[in-house]
């Protein structure tokens, strides 16, 4: 398509950053834009939905309450109890719940026409959320194990002494630097890729139909449109899966921090 005489310009990554709504802090790049509005919207939507769904706390739940309870039960049991263990999981339910649904709703924004932008396809939100969890992980580790936590996290046990200098550096890099980066970039990269596919398909169809026209244009445009439907559902799966993976990793990191001495 790019070799076409009409000169199709594929969308660039810069185009995922929409124009700002308010030019506040514009000297730091983009001002206050759609992405930030959606973050605020997600907080409101999640808070409102769950508080509204559980307001009656009836023994025999309504359909809404049942759906909300299923979501809460999923976080509580699959992410909380199964990973953190019966003894510790209760106090971490709110964090896991907030992480899972915050990421989930912000991802699904990418599949809602009109919004159509997963918040975490931008690096800033992904770094920020992974950073919060990283800090929580370190604070929890020091609170549970004291200064020994650094040693537990960097010095692997049962390793020959001459290997230690190398391994300590590697472990430090792996646990303290690379882990939060991968935690955030995994989410961000998947969301960005999905978003670019949607953008590419959209602009391709727009170009073929509106600018090129003709039998090829309409035909190819229709083909891409049909082809983008399974992609849309694949994206939907990815959005849910990435939210799950992100929350799952959060639970695993916290578990690693609580039981650092058991490793």
């Amino acid at each position: 398509m790019a070799t076409n005489e009409g000169g199709f310009q594929p969308p660039t990554i810069s185009e995922t950053h929409l124009p700002e709504i308010f030019p506040w802090m514009a000297e730091w790049g983009t001002g206050f834009g759609k992405n930030m509005l959606m973050v605020i919207l997600s907080v409101i939507v999640i808070s409102w939905f769950f508080m509204w769904a559980i307001r009656k706390q009836s023994l025999v739940p309504s359909r809404t309450q049942f759906i909300a309870e299923s979501g809460y039960g999923f976080v509580r049991h699959t992410l909380g109890r199964d990973i953190l263990g019966e003894k510790h999981f209760r106090q971490w339910i709110p964090l896991l719940f907030a992480v899972f649904f915050f990421v989930l709703v912000n991802n699904i924004f990418g599949a809602i026409p009109g919004l159509q932008l997963p918040t975490f396809s931008h690096a800033g939100p992904a770094y920020a959320l992974a950073g919060i969890i990283w800090i929580a992980w370190i604070v929890l580790g020091f609170r549970t194990h004291g200064p020994k936590f650094i040693k537990l996290m960097t010095v692997p046990s049962g390793v020959p002494k001459w290997l230690l200098p190398l391994l300590v550096v590697l472990e430090f890099l792996s646990n303290f630097i690379i882990r939060p980066l991968t935690h955030s970039l995994r989410l961000m990269a998947v969301m960005l890729a999905g978003h670019i596919i949607v953008m590419l398909a959209g602009s391709g169809v727009e170009f073929l139909v509106a600018q090129q026209g003709g039998l090829d244009g309409y035909g190819l445009g229709a083909l891409i449109l049909v082809g983008s439907i399974p992609l849309y559902f694949l994206e939907l799966i990815m959005m849910v899966l990435q939210a799950f993976v992100f929350a799952l990793l959060t639970a695993i990191y916290i578990q690693g921090s609580i039981e650092a001495d058991a490793h």
Partner: peptide, 16 residues
């Protein structure tokens, strides 16, 4: 794409 927009990061931190 790896460079964060601090505005967005700030909103996400506060929102979260």
């Amino acid at each position: 794409p790896l460079l964060p927009n601090p505005w967005e990061a700030l909103v996400v931190i506060l929102g979260f």
